[in-house]
Design a protein around this nucleic acid. Structure first.
Lengths: 96, 96
DNA sequence: CATCTATTTGGCTATTTGGCAGAATAGAGG
DNA sequence: CCTCTATTCTGCCAAATAGCCAAATAGATG
């Protein structure tokens, strides 16, 4: 059954996993408001820029964000916008 | 800013993280259909029972499931039912 | 109380992750 | 072509995770 589980739930689980880190979840929400460059996200998050870049590549690999070059900076945008709705659920947590 | 991110997104991220494993996501969906004992989940998943038990404790720690004893077995139920809706989003993945 | 069954817990190992610092890269602009 | 800036990549380390097996536990039941 294991292969089957991986087949059915693998990609979906990967998306959850990508969002399963406070910094990455914050980034997703921030990008939900407006497209933002790495440098600005770095300033907001407060981690090393290499760390933020790595978080972004995790989000991109999961298909949650993508990016585009603008001048000499890379602008990230939220590609899978519905993650914003997903969030509402967990937010009310134990409640409902 | 880091403390603030943790404060705002920490618990929510933990819920995503808990669902970020194919086996645990499968279990959540299965429990969405009906309450189930560890033994039966183990049979469905095909991992060692101790592994399944650990997955269940991760889900419980995140507030996603809870359990109740019935006879000599422990029945798990989906406590945070809205995770079933969350799933729909990721499922259509890159699409929307 | 002794035992049986279902589950959890405690190692243990291999792998993955998160973070930083520093090197490498890619365009922009002189 | 040189340099500057923004970003990504590579090593490195500490910590967390997934999985198995074996031991411990908790009720159920004789």
């Amino acid at each position: 059954m294991k292969d089957n589980i991986l087949e059915v739930y693998g990609m979906e689980a990967a998306a959850f996993k990508a969002l399963g880190h406070p910094t990455r979840l914050f980034i997703a929400h921030q990008l939900g408001k407006r497209d933002t460059c790495v440098c600005e996200l770095t300033a907001m998050v407060g981690d090393d820029i290499s760390t933020v870049s790595k978080h972004l590549s995790v989000l991109r690999a999961a298909g949650i964000v993508d990016s585009v070059r603008k001048g000499n900076q890379i602008i990230y945008r939220l590609k899978l916008r519905c993650v914003l709705n997903m969030s509402v659920c967990a937010k009310f947590g134990k409640g409902k």
